[in-house]
Simulated assay, not measured.
Amino acid sequence: MKFKKILFPFIVGALAFSLAACGDDDKAKKEEIPKDEVKQEANEEQATAEEMQEKLEEQQLDAKKLVAVVNEEKLTGEEYNVALASIQSQMLQSGQDLSSKESIDQIKKQTLETLVNQALILQNAKKEEIKASPAEVDKKYLSFEEQFGGKKELKKALKDQKVDDKTFKLQITDSIIFDKYIEKMVPTEKVTDEEIKNYYDQAASDSKEAGEEIPPFEEASEQIAGILSQQQQQKNLAAHVEELKENAKIELKI
């Protein structure tokens, strides 16, 4: 019962994918598998990963290419490529094929939409004088260092994603502003006990048909409340973005 944002500061998705990959590598190292088999599997996985990476990089644009103009703000290939990497990472995690023409078209459309939506949010946040303090940015940065196991590991992950430290901190700043904006401008109502119970009953019914089990209601209720709250927030956010678009001048250049 996981839920992921459709609007987000781009770097989060890309780094989350990198972190997950590191976790998988660590797990593989700990498993008791003969060294020769581990080496062979590692070589095969590396070859597959490199082939996939080449295909993903083919979808990138020239960093200086103009991709969209949102209320006179020019969005370039550099910003597009960061958003693209995050969306590609999410799709990879869900097991989708990223190399077919249909997938490439879908990724391009989603990347542009995400890029435009985030620009609108951040532009409006500026009007509302919503800011991120240096202390907040530093705290968030340190939390990433902890997640990655230290400064050195984080630097490596950023390098792998082709993101420099300055750009990363700007993305963190946008992330903080983005979250503050949603909290202020897109409030949600408290989820009711009835809504939680209805969700659980439906999930239990679906799981039973699939021959699966779910945790007892007492264990799952808190997570369900979070899911329903996020769903409500996403619905409200989508409606809010549409309102922003009605009063915005948006030109797509690709």
Rank of each mutant, 00 (worst) to 15 (best):
M1G: 09
N117T: 07
K35S: 03
D138K: 13
A119F: 08
Y141P: 03
Y181A: 00
L237H: 05
L237G: 02
P134N: 10
S229L: 04
L122W: 11
Q161R: 14
Y141S: 00
N124L: 11
Q147C: 04
Y181Q: 07
A63F: 09
K29C: 02
E44C: 01
Y199L: 00
A239H: 13
S175E: 10
Y141H: 11
A14S: 14
P187H: 07
F10T: 02
I11M: 10
D165P: 01
G149S: 05
N117W: 08
F10C: 00
E189I: 03
F217I: 03
D193I: 00
F148R: 01
V186E: 07
F144Q: 01
Q106Y: 12
L61F: 13
L170P: 02
K139Q: 12
A210R: 12
F144V: 01
T173I: 02
N247S: 15
I224C: 03
K4Q: 05
I250K: 11
F178S: 04
A119D: 12
A203C: 04
F178D: 06
F168Y: 08
S205V: 05
Y199P: 05
K140H: 08
L244E: 09
K180P: 05
E54A: 15
S221R: 15
H240S: 04
I130N: 09
E222T: 09
Q60S: 06
D206R: 12
K65M: 11
L19G: 00
Y80V: 00
F217K: 12
K30T: 00
D174H: 13
K5M: 01
F17V: 05
S133D: 09
P134D: 09
K162D: 10
I130K: 12
L154V: 00
L244F: 13
N124Y: 13
D160R: 08
S205I: 08
E58W: 10
L112N: 12
I177K: 15
D179N: 14
K156V: 05
P187W: 10
S175T: 08
E246W: 00
T188V: 15
F17I: 00
